[in-house]
Design a protein around this nucleic acid. Structure first.
Lengths: 123, 123
DNA sequence: TAGAAACCTGACGCTGACGTCAGAGGTAGG
DNA sequence: CCTACCTCTGACGTCAGCGTCAGGTTTCTA
C-alpha cells in the first residue's frame, strides 16, 4: 500500500510516517518513481511505534529496541534498556494514579462546596 | 525562604520556579530589593504543580483549576474541566498499561531467545 | 488524455517547559 | 569591607514530534 492508505489505516499523519522513516523506525520499498510502498504488517509496526512514543520513549531509544522487539530477540544490553524503560513506565503509571487521586479529592471537595453554594474565584 | 532554597527543597530548578510565577501559578512576596520570598507551603504548591504537569495538563489549564484546587471550591465549569482531565489521565494510564504488557511480552520473548543463543542485530 | 488527487523532497514553523548566558545588583560570613 | 555566592531581569536557545507551505512529479479517474 502507499503512504496515504497507511496513514488513514493507522490514524497517523503522512508527515509522521515520513518522519518515522527519517528516524529509521519504518522502512519502505520505493517504486521506480520514488513512491513509498508498504506491506500490510507496516500498520502493526506503526501502532507499535505509537505505543512506545506514548510511553515517553524517544525515537533514538525506540530505534535501539525496535529490531529486537520485532524479531523477539534481544541482547543483554537491550534487555537492560527494556527493563529500564519498564521501570520508567511503571513510575509514570504510579505518578498518574497519584494525580488521579489528587483530582478525585479535589472534585469531591468541589462538589461538596458547590452544594453549600460557595463560589469559585473567576477565571 | 528564597528561591534557591525552594528549588533545592522541591528538586525543581530556579528557572522553573520563575516560569511558574510567569504563568501565574506561583506567587511570591518581594523584598525591598526585589528578591522573591516564599512561605513554607509554597513547596507543596510546587509539588502539586509538578504533579499536574506530569499528568499532561498545560499551564493554562492548571491556572484555571489551581485556585479551586487550593481552596477546594469549584464552579460547575471547572468541575467539567476536571472531569475531562480525569478521563484523559485514565486513558493515559490505560495506554501505559498496554505498553507495559507489550514490553513484558517483548522481554519474555527476548529472554527465551537469549537462552537459545540467537544474537541481536547490532545497534 | 486531461485534470484532480496523491506523492515527492526540502525547509522553515510551532509549541511548551524550561536551559543558559549576560550584565547588574543583593547578601551573608569572616 | 571584601569576597563568594545568590538573585534579578531580559532574551535567545533547545528539543522532539510533527504541521505546513512551496514547487514539482506521479498516479488514478472520468
Amino acid at each position: 500500500m502507499r503512504i496515504g492508505e497507511l496513514a488513514t489505516k493507522t490514524g497517523v499523519s503522512v508527515r509522521a510516517l515520513r518522519y518515522y522513516e527519517e528516524q529509521g523506525l519504518l522502512a519502505s520499498e520505493r517504486s521506480e518513481s520514488g513512491q513509498r510502498h508498504y506491506p500490510d504488517e507496516a500498520a502493526n509496526r506503526v501502532r507499535l511505534i505509537q505505543q512506545l512514543y506514548a510511553a515517553g520513549i524517544s525515537s533514538a531509544s525506540i530505534l535501539e529496541m525496535l529490531p529486537c522487539v520485532v524479531t523477539g530477540v534481544a541482547s543483554p544490553q537491550v534487555l537492560a534498556k527494556l527493563r529500564q524503560h519498564r521501570s520508567s513506565v511503571i513510575k509514570q503509571i504510579e505518578d498518574l494514579q497519584e494525580t488521579l487521586h489528587q483530582l478525585d479529592s479535589v472534585m469531591a471537595g468541589a462538589a461538596k462546596s458547590h452544594e453549600s453554594g460557595v463560589p469559585c474565584p473567576p477565571s
